[in-house]
Design a protein around this nucleic acid. Structure first.
Lengths: 241, 241
DNA sequence: ACAGGGCAAATGTGATCACAATTTCCAGCC
DNA sequence: GGCTGGAAATTGTGATCACATTTGCCCTGT
């Protein structure tokens, strides 16, 4: 088995003679790892709407694999709170509540500025150039109204900094948090559009260039506060649960 | 199948006629959930040493279930970073490094005092009495040198407060963190003994009784700093990785 | 026309089998 | 005696089957 090359390719029964292709799937990777990464991106960039259910067999058919690796990938995402297993044993993307949103905001402010500050001394000139390139990609996507492109680049901007901190335990916590508000963020941008987003990343970049830890901390904090305030207002403002 | 009642009962082939017992296993719970909880406790209270490997079939035989629910439970614990899947596909309890330890300490101080403060207004008289009872159990276990009993009660002390905050997203983050230093904590106490532990919980209880949020925050922070400093020194001081 | 009952499809869970990669162990050689 | 080679056992991974529960839908009855 192990198709998984194309995106979806429709829903066909199961077996056909097409194993040796595997186009450009990363070799040496287990199937459930590939499924995990694909699902993770779907969630992180808002490919699946909050509240919508996913089924093991449905995903398996869609990706052209057996239900088994999907089970493992889904189980993993449930543990990371990117998916929710409710009592009826149905798996869905957890809907956002005002309480959860507020907790996510708190956790982000408690952890992400610290990660940025820890990364500061380890960012090389080349790293900084790469981050600047990502920031440009953000601008392009924002102006083009490309919501998914914006979210991808925004994620890359933050985590290409955070990862340099070499604090993988803390980074893992933050990644779990991002997974939890990804679908929600997408909803907000889908509702309002990306054109009104203010780009706070310039302040962060300026602080990085001058190796100003305190400035970087407040830039990241401001970015979180402003961005989260924006999407929180956009979606939770009226009749939010 | 689904034995899992007794603790281990040795390693026998597989099939025998003993299904309808199930002594006092919680009904209505899936097998992998039971396996998960059992493994989780093993890790949280230091039943498994850091660096030691676990195998799916080994655990399955030990618990009297098929490898399948064990796979799901282990996959879940890997996602929570309570277990580590290394490149050789071997699963083990992650060994502690000085860097990881420091990150855990930071995350605890960033999140746990906040959780305690949030819980403060929601703690009823009955809740407080229960917490005091747990604190007494801590004293008893400490004096008796009962390491596992101490760890169980200590966990219960902290989380019976945190859970009252009703901030389940943050509590989940903290639970994941505790899972990561459980085995390590056990090693430290096994090496030093529990008799030298200073009980900082009295300050926390006093702050709770007087509804002093600021005082509770610093009591929790002091408890974390002192306890973690203690076990960090005990194990990482010399030749730590 | 609408509510309730019951049948069929779908779904998560667990067990078992097959397989490739890894580890373990022991014989054989320098 | 210590090291190397390969065979055997062990282990994680994936596929397939079986089953109980749940969901969805159609049909019937008033």
């Amino acid at each position: 088995m192990k198709r998984l090359a194309g995106v979806a390719a429709g829903t066909r029964p199961t077996s056909e003679g097409e194993e040796p292709q595997e186009s450009q799937a990363i070799v040496g990777l287990t199937t459930h790892e590939e499924v995990y990464r694909r699902l993770r991106e779907q969630i992180l960039y808002g490919g699946i709407k909050p509240g919508s259910a996913v089924t093991l067999r449905g995903l398996a058919d869609e990706l052209g694999v057996s239900p088994m690796p999907v089970r493992e990938a889904v189980r993993r995402l449930i543990a990371e709170r990117a998916l929710l297993l409710q009592d009826n044993r149905r798996v869905l993307v957890p809907p956002m509540t005002r309480d959860t949103f507020e907790q996510i905001l708190f956790a982000r402010r408690a952890l992400e500025p610290e990660l940025a500050a820890r990364a500061l001394s380890k960012l090389s000139k080349k790293d900084i150039a790469a981050i600047e390139a990502v920031d440009n990609a953000i601008d392009v996507a924002m102006r083009a109204g490309d919501t998914e492109g914006y979210m991808r680049s925004n994620y890359q901007f933050h985590f290409s900094i955070y990862r340099k901190s070499e604090a993988d335990t803390l980074v893992a916590l933050v990644e779990s948090i991002w997974l939890q508000f990804g679908p929600f963020m997408r909803m907000a941008y889908g509702r309002i559009g990306t054109s009104t987003i203010e780009d706070h990343h310039e302040f962060a970049l300026a602080a990085i260039r001058t190796r100003d830890a305190k400035g970087l901390r407040s830039a990241i904090d401001a970015d979180i506060g402003q961005g989260m305030g924006f999407i929180g207002e956009a979606v939770l403002s009226r009749a939010g649960p």
